[in-house]
């Protein structure tokens, strides 16, 4: 019986690795069950880090799994041949397997600091080295995203700001800075394809930034529980070519000027 149980534990690393490999390779049973396509210039670094940690932990996962199996197989009471090793441990081994993981973990910690900084701490600057002004302010509210574009003067909170709901248009191949905030409860501004997630907190303004490199329509997800309608708080991210974006902005401005609703929401 013991051998059967050992084999059961052997299936853990085998199936575990198999599932991840199946998910990673395009096509097959798990097609598209992997990181969604990345369209952010800054996002690749996160994917790389993810894969790096995956390989690293994968090696440890396989290693410990095989060891566990091997020990169970070999020292099964029904079939074992060697006498029991009466030992209380080994100082050398303890030191080795303390220092090695410690060094690895510290390495990961330091290695990723740049990525963290570029995502959360160093907002993009313009040609003069000043912080790049925000293109749009995104306000989460139960259960929609309200957007406020800077308009013609490129400055937020002025008279020509343009207001839309849920449809976030951004130009491609351009550094985009977005101010995110909330009007009522916590939400989370999650662009899966941009590898961007930022909880938005009422009363607190925060910035996110990215540079899209692929036009198309993507999802804007709310990733922080915000009430019963959390699931339906869906926005759409449109990455447009520069021309399309300008055209859309102009159109949005015209629509706004021609309706009374817009001026009311401006207040």
């Amino acid at each position: 019986m013991g051998r059967l149980w050992s084999l059961l534990f052997l299936t853990v690393p085998i199936l575990g690795v198999a599932i991840f490999v199946l998910a990673m390779i395009p096509g097959g049973v798990f097609d598209d069950h992997w990181l969604p396509v990345n369209i952010n210039e800054h996002g690749q670094i996160i994917d790389d880090l993810f894969m790096f940690i995956l390989y690293l932990t994968g090696v440890i996962f396989i290693g410990t799994g095989i060891l566990l199996f091997w020990f169970l197989w070999k020292y099964d009471t029904e079939t074992r041949t060697e006498p029991v090793k009466y030992t209380h441990g080994s100082h050398t081994l303890e030191i080795i397997w303390s220092i090695l993981p410690a060094a690895t973990l510290l390495f990961i910690a330091i290695y990723q600091m740049d990525a963290w900084a570029s995502h959360k701490m160093v907002p993009p600057v313009d040609d003069h080295g000043d912080p790049k002004p925000a293109l749009v302010e995104v306000t989460g509210r139960q259960f929609e995203w309200r957007l406020r574009y800077a308009g013609r003067d490129g400055e937020l909170y002025t008279k020509d700001d343009i207001f839309t709901v849920n449809d976030l248009h951004v130009p491609v191949n351009e550094q985009v800075v977005i101010v995110v905030k909330s009007q009522d409860v916590l939400h989370s501004f999650f662009l899966p394809n941009m590898r961007i997630k930022q909880d938005v907190i009422p009363g607190m303004k925060q910035k996110v930034w990215f540079q899209a490199n692929q036009v198309g329509q993507y999802d804007l997800v709310c990733a922080e529980l915000c009430g019963w309608g959390h699931y339906k708080m869906r926005g759409r991210l449109w990455v447009d070519s520069a021309d399309d974006f300008a055209k859309w902005l102009e159109q949005a401005e015209q629509e706004q000027n021609s309706t009374e609703i817009a001026s009311a929401s401006q207040e």
Partner: peptide
């Protein structure tokens, strides 16, 4: 330090 990141509305 919360006043440092107050929004305009707040």
């Amino acid at each position: 330090n919360r006043t440092n990141h107050y929004t305009r509305e707040r």
